[in-house]
Design a protein around this nucleic acid. Structure first.
Lengths: 198, 198
DNA sequence: ATCATTTCTTAAGGTACCTTATTCTTTTCG
DNA sequence: CGAAAAGAATAAGGTACCTTAAGAAATGAT
């Protein structure tokens, strides 16, 4: 079995236990793909038909606000799942590669069929949704009650090396601040990260 | 059939089509309850075992941040579902009645059994989760890109009469601002709501 | 290597929102 | 009804973050 599939199965087993038959059925609907840097996997308004799993590289999901600015909602690095929320509808989000990225795409209709044959995947998907939802609620709370420097510290803990891999204005956008202000809190608050990792 | 069950079935049919047998099986696991004003349905840290549906009245979910302040995440009025995200775990959120409230509680284990007998409820639950997740992503974006007055306008559109029913500091908390600042934007920006409803 | 482009930094002035405090108004409940 | 408690308004001074602008540094294409 290729290494990339090992990574995917490990991610599955974090949520549910599977028989080898179920594993095989799941792998059968997975399509391995690669994206170049800046390539789009999905654009706002397109039909959204896939769930994505990152094997290496980095994807982002973002949206364009009413003033025309891009706002990053999520980053997905190795072992992360990412997708728009609803399927078979015009997508709310765009999904784009920030690095050359290997990923797996799973067609939702194929997945739906899979759940009918192997109901355990209902549980899997539910857990995936719940985890994402949970993380979002916590981030929303953090955004409401913490300062940008504290949110950046949280970001560094969640994505330890990502700040070295992608342009900083993408991180600023994720944090909900301007690149300029992000630059100043970085120069002022290097000690915050030291606290965070100690 | 009592009126309160009609409301619940209508809410179900928004997401999935059901046979009368499935309807009956669903109603069989619903428990109708009432809560007095200020009564807690769930407190942070308790085992979370229920999904709630509001028939009338108003519930809120909130969390206490590191400085000890309550932060409102969601309101649930008539026809709204509300719950903590994960089950069988210590709850992240507290859920409390802001008015005398009639609601239905659904035990997640009973629901799990129901899904095994009637797989259509997997779809129902998934849609419920997706809708909540979707709404949250949009609210998070709004919180990042809009001013508090604009967020308040959105609130008024989503909950037209709620601002007359609950203390304003709860709305301020939901919007992520202080009651004092909420008071000033209200006195300054009455025109915003006029725009919104016109 | 070199030039063009993208990204990052710094700084000044401005705005949205916060904190604290006081007074006024409304609700609750004996 | 009247007293106590809860909620709302207003104002002054402060902070976090934004906007604009310009220059410096890093990256990428030829």
């Amino acid at each position: 079995m290729p290494l990339s599939q090992e990574l995917l199965l490990t991610a599955l087993h974090q949520h549910v236990s599977l028989t080898s038959e179920e594993e095989a059925a799941f792998l059968a609907i997975c399509e391995e793909k690669t994206a170049k840097k800046k390539e789009f996997l999905l654009r706002t308004g397109e039909q959204n038909l896939y769930l994505y799993f990152v094997q290496n590289g980095c994807l982002r999901s973002f949206i364009i606000d009413q003033s025309g600015k891009e706002v990053n909602l999520e980053f997905a690095v190795e072992r992360y799942w990412i997708s728009d929320v609803a399927f078979h509808k015009p997508a709310l989000l765009s999904i784009q590669a920030l690095e050359p990225t290997q990923y797996v795409q799973i067609n939702v209709d194929a997945f739906e069929t899979l759940t009918q044959q192997h109901p355990v995947f209902n549980l899997f998907y539910r857990k995936l949704l719940q985890n994402g939802y949970f993380a979002f609620k916590k981030r929303m709370l953090s955004g409401m009650t913490q300062t940008a420097a504290e949110n950046y510290r949280d970001f560094l803990l969640k994505f330890p090396d990502l700040s070295q891999r992608i342009p900083q204005y993408h991180i600023a956008s994720y944090l909900g601040i301007t690149p300029e202000f992000f630059s100043t809190i970085k120069s002022e608050g290097l000690d915050l990260y030291q606290q965070a990792i100690s």
